[in-house]
Design a binder for these strands. Structure first.
Length: 228
DNA sequence: GCGACAG
DNA sequence: ATCTTGTCGC
């Protein structure tokens, strides 16, 4: 038996508590479709808008099999540590437009790597009821704990831990690129999260394919929504 | 007032 | 996140 991972009860919203699991509730062979989620923002006449794109790929072939978009006014401000409250409305709207049910979701943001263990990827999992992974491009410092830069080699990583608890991982997805910050969202462990992320890296980007494609689609969608 | 700050 | 040209480096 491997170490029993920590399970925590964390308050995610006024009186609402949720249990986060850092154990896989699936087998790797069952992961066939992976969704990448991202949002792009813009401002018009003092109003803030956003467009969310979800791109689903076949985990084996890495081919895009479906995508959906949602857009609308964004009324919740960005507050470090509360990103989910700002992004979830559009995310869920786009999720409902999908015809297929992805086996796993990857987010542009943190999961367990968060001072309440409740980053976007983790918070979203309770609405998706699917395993999620958090992939952030920058580090949101926790308890004044800096991260250790991993070696400059593909796959090199260092873990971000406080006390005996590992929050997330600084992962160098390729040589000579900025590392990314990977963490479990829910129902998946950090080792598996890392494995899935690395399996989604190609020579075109330091970000895993699903998130990278969602990022690209999101900008294209915005271009068409704004007459610029 | 100053610094921090996922997206 | 977004606003943006040139420019340093391979």
């Amino acid at each position: 038996m491997k170490n029993k991972m920590i399970k925590e009860y964390t308050r995610i919203q006024n009186g609402l508590f949720a249990k986060v699991s850092l154990e896989n509730n699936f087998k790797m062979e069952e992961i066939l479709r992976i969704a990448g989620v991202d949002i792009a923002y813009w401002e018009e006449k003092g109003f803030h808008y956003g467009t969310c794109c979800i791109v689903v790929i076949n985990f084996r072939t890495k081919i895009v099999i479906e995508q959906s978009t949602s857009n609308g006014e964004i009324t919740v401000p960005y507050i470090p540590g509360f990103l989910a409250f700002r992004e979830l409305p559009l995310v869920m709207e786009a999720v409902e437009k999908l015809t297929m049910d992805p086996d796993l979701y990857m987010f542009d943001g943190n999961g367990y790597l968060h001072y309440r263990h409740m980053g976007l990827a983790t918070h979203a999992s309770f609405y998706l009821n699917k395993p999620t992974i958090g992939v952030a491009k920058n580090y949101l410092k926790i308890e004044n704990t800096p991260f250790v830069m991993p070696e400059n080699e593909t796959g090199a990583f260092t873990d971000i831990r406080i006390g005996q608890e590992i929050y997330g991982r600084v992962l160098r997805t390729a040589k000579d690129v900025k590392p990314i910050f990977v963490s479990s969202g829910n129902w998946i462990d950090l080792a598996t999260s890392t494995e899935v992320v690395m399996a989604c890296i190609n020579e075109n980007s330091r970000l895993p394919i699903p998130v990278r494609l969602a990022d690209i689609e999101t900008r294209l969608a915005r271009r068409n929504l704004i007459s610029k």
